[in-house]
């Protein structure tokens, strides 16, 4: 299985390559990708450096062009495709039908991966993208159970990549408008979920309040850790109780599922977190490299090592990790 690691800048890309990533995925410094955050991502100047560093060290680079262009911004998306082709990127991670059509027509040899933002969760949807645009690999939304992933992998017309670790989207990626409902900006429209400019923190008699565009997302007692306010991890009132109505602030960690994912024929596992720092990239990549190497050597006797879990827990968002939708009971 290929290990696909995130990088929000050149130092993180080097860290990912140095710590054993088979491929690194990056984005351009604009709204053509779903991590359009200030100070993050690549421009035409350092794209070439990124590709050079990865290629001389035997790693691949994928460019995420995985948001949905609107008419007024169309040229930014085609420019990103053009830059990727010029710089010799190994694959584009794409979501928009128009962008795929452009990339396939202009650069017929370009390898296209279907982004998780395209929300393809079944073999018929995958077949459509395969037939229409020659998609070679698809990243699955984090909504399928392990059994569903196994069955899909057995019938899939394209290679599959699944999320292994990181911040957990509990909605089908590409089909979540909770952020724009609160703020007017969403991953699909603006390349960002719950942008920081809409976040406010206020003191409250019982502790701290987090708000998103004025909407109260959570209240934290003075002595507890306060999480970043996204609607899906907020505490609200429903059916007479106040609780995490959609999901607790947990991270995804599937390291225990590695043997099952390998047996299913999953071709790549993906680490979330282009917005995270270089230390995160280095630490998480090295743990997953070690796990994959252990699996490769002793596939029958694979055991999750304590130090892996300890190391991953130290960089996870929130105190808990979960198997998310892979585990049927979570649903």
């Amino acid at each position: 299985m290929e290990l696909v690691a995130p990088a929000g800048n050149l130092p993180s890309l080097k860290a990912a390559v140095d710590h054993g990533a088979d491929a690194v995925y990056i984005g351009m410094r604009d709204d053509t990708n779903a991590r359009h955050f200030p100070g993050l991502n690549f421009d035409a100047g350092n794209l070439a450096k990124a590709v050079f560093y990865a290629h001389v060290n035997g790693a691949k680079v994928f460019l995420a062009i995985n948001t949905y262009p609107q008419p007024q911004g169309w040229q930014r998306w085609t420019r990103a495709v053009d830059l990727a082709a010029d710089a010799g990127l190994d694959a584009l991670i794409v979501a928009d039908i128009g962008v795929m059509e452009y990339a396939q027509a202009r650069y017929p040899g370009m390898r296209l991966h279907l982004s998780v933002q395209a929300s393809a969760t079944n073999r018929n949807a995958l077949s459509w993208y395969r037939q229409a645009f020659g998609i070679r690999r698809a990243v699955l939304p984090r909504v399928l159970s392990l059994n569903q992933v196994v069955r899909l992998a057995a019938n899939s017309p394209v290679d599959l990549e699944v999320f292994a670790f990181g911040s957990l989207c509990i909605m089908v990626e590409g089909r979540c408008q909770l952020s724009s409902y609160a703020t007017g900006k969403s991953p699909n429209l603006s390349g960002a979920c719950s942008p920081a400019e809409f976040v406010t923190w206020q003191k409250h008699p019982s502790g701290l309040e987090s708000r998103l565009n004025g909407l109260l997302v959570d209240r934290f007692p003075a002595d507890s850790a306060a999480g970043y306010p996204v609607i899906c991890k907020g505490r609200f009132r429903a059916a007479g109780a106040v609780y995490h109505v959609l999901e607790e602030p947990t991270s995804l960690n599937t390291i225990a599922l590695l043997p099952a994912l390998a047996r299913a024929g999953i071709k790549a596992i993906k680490i979330e977190g282009r917005q995270r720092g270089t230390a995160y990239v280095a630490q998480v990549t090295s743990v997953w490299r070690a796990a994959l190497d252990a699996l490769h050597k002793h596939s029958d006797a694979f055991a999750v090592q304590h130090e892996w879990l300890h190391s991953l827990a130290s960089v996870a968002e929130g105190a808990q990790t979960t198997l998310g939708a892979y585990q049927r009971a979570w649903q």
């Binding site: 949905y68 262009p69 609107q70 128009g98 018929n124």
Partner: peptide, 30 residues
């Protein structure tokens, strides 16, 4: 869902596209 688009297109049937399909520009629409 694109699964429905796939099946309907295979049968050469006209279809309506719902709001859950991500169509944000004229190229995708076309």
């Amino acid at each position: 869902d694109m699964a429905a688009v796939h099946l309907l297109n295979e049968k050469h049937l006209p279809f309506a596209g719902g709001h859950a399909l991500n169509i944000y520009n004229s190229r995708s629409l076309n």
